[in-house]
Design a protein around this nucleic acid. Structure first.
Lengths: 264, 264
DNA sequence: CGCCCTGTTGAATCTGGTCAAACTAAGTGG
DNA sequence: CCACTTAGTTTGACCAGATTCAACAGGGCG
């Protein structure tokens, strides 16, 4: 069983190339030995489109780092209406928010064939005890998620369909850019229906607005392929809360340095 | 300056009666000495209705524990539309989600005269180093917020105005019940406009639906006073995602016991 | 080749928003 | 103590954006 796992293994899990850089990169850990050891405990798992990573109510035993592919998370009303709360791409860590209730409170489904890395919660314990910085990273990850959720609430509560779509396309664009993919041309792994569910509008509305954007020359959209033609215009439609020029924020700031316990 | 603060002081901050029980109660700390020491570093602050606790972009220097009163947090679009993301009552901890960017990403405004306890972020560092359980509590607090936000996204994305109001009243009722106030009769500290902003509907709609509920005998509402007359009915209107019978979840579970470092 | 899923477009309907106005409660200042 | 102001609340009338229902197109896959 996993309880008898050795300490270095846990560190390894967090620091290999399995998509967990969200947790380990900012820590500046020496990964030489961890890479060496990561065979021991890393548990890769591959799931096909439509398969579930975890479901509501399920015991929280693992967090998941996405290696490749993409995943949607969602919550539902008792009568089956489903709200997608997020799309997740490689490098992101999933499931941490189950920590409070010890069971997952949303479900995660693969949008395409997806490879993930399971991290046992016990491993987090281990990791966190050894490397205080891991704790801080966990806090940051959750903090980031809260910020995203706030933006999404603003979108769902106050924006009209056009603004929602524009915001959505721009956010995607930025995320791709951050990972060195083209920010103006990309393939969507999610269906129109998924987009609608995420944005709180009907899938027909998604189609209509995309068609309108295309008419106006703002984008070109052909099924799952999207090309942004006029990012500026898109931005003015989106009317976002934050300036488009994202400030570069240092990964770690002095006042939190003690969290790192000298790891940096 | 606060950097020279002694270790016990920080523990004291977290464990006095200043509303921080969200952070310390589950830890089972001996509060005798901490109460004794809490004069040193606790910084109480009282703000009047409409005054701001922190604003967007402001440096993240303090988290706030609410002692009395209530606070709303909100985010806004660049053209001024405001989405209220949460109402906060005594015992709750505010502002932690700024940890990632090191600056507040929402604003917090008092709904009435409100007394808070400022906790320096440096103190969290101190606290967390001494008592690993504090880290775990911070994770839990943020996890809980994420869960709330997910529910709210479901509400904003998929529910109609009636369902939103019903959900809102029931959620309030449960929160009051949890603090040993009457779950069926309470005063709202927020305006109709605030409720509307929170639920993503116009304040006129809030009025209309409340009037309808009253006609149907589900509630009695007189300005800020609300009396729930038919909780069952309200529940069936709300169509919530979770069963009304909330499971009792143990504060700490075995697999996370190591976080506590034997504090329990 | 034909089925099925996804996406697209059209038309009718309706929920909830907007605008406007009246009303209430609570101050405020003379 | 009362006239006046102001903020909050309530109700009505009208309208627009988005949903719903329905029909259809087109790719992908067995």
């Amino acid at each position: 069983m996993r309880q008898t796992v050795q300490k270095p293994d846990c560190a390894a899990i967090a620091c290999q190339d399995c998509g967990l850089y969200q947790l380990c990169l900012p820590m500046g850990l020496n990964s030489a030995d961890t890479v060496l050891l990561d065979h021991y405990v890393k548990r890769k798992r591959t799931i096909k489109r439509g398969q579930m990573l975890y479901r509501v109510g399920e015991q929280f035993s693992y967090a998941y780092a996405i290696r490749s592919g993409s995943v949607k998370t969602s919550v539902s009303t008792e009568d089956g209406r489903q709200q997608i709360t997020g799309f997740h791409i490689p490098g992101e860590l999933l499931g941490l928010n189950a920590i409070d209730e010890n069971r997952h409170n949303c479900e995660a489904v693969a949008l395409e064939t997806t490879s993930v890395c399971e991290i046992s919660v016990n491993c987090f314990d281990e990791l966190a005890r050894q490397i205080p910085a891991v704790h801080f990273q966990m806090l940051r990850i959750m903090s980031k998620e809260i910020r995203h959720n706030q933006e999404q609430m603003l979108l769902l509560g106050k924006k009209n369909a056009e603004e929602r779509l524009a915001t959505y396309l721009l956010t995607l664009s930025r995320r791709f850019a951050m990972r060195n993919y083209s920010p103006t041309q990309f393939n969507l792994s999610m269906s129109r229906s998924d987009i609608g569910s995420y944005l709180g509008i009907a899938e027909e509305t998604v189609c209509r607005i995309l068609a309108r954007f295309q008419e106006e020359g703002v984008i070109v959209s052909e099924r799952r392929l999207v090309v942004l033609k006029d990012v500026k215009r898109l931005g003015s439609i989106a009317r976002e809360s934050r300036p488009a020029t994202a400030r570069v924020i240092p990964l770690l700031r002095p006042s939190h340095a003690t969290f790192l316990n000298g790891a940096l």
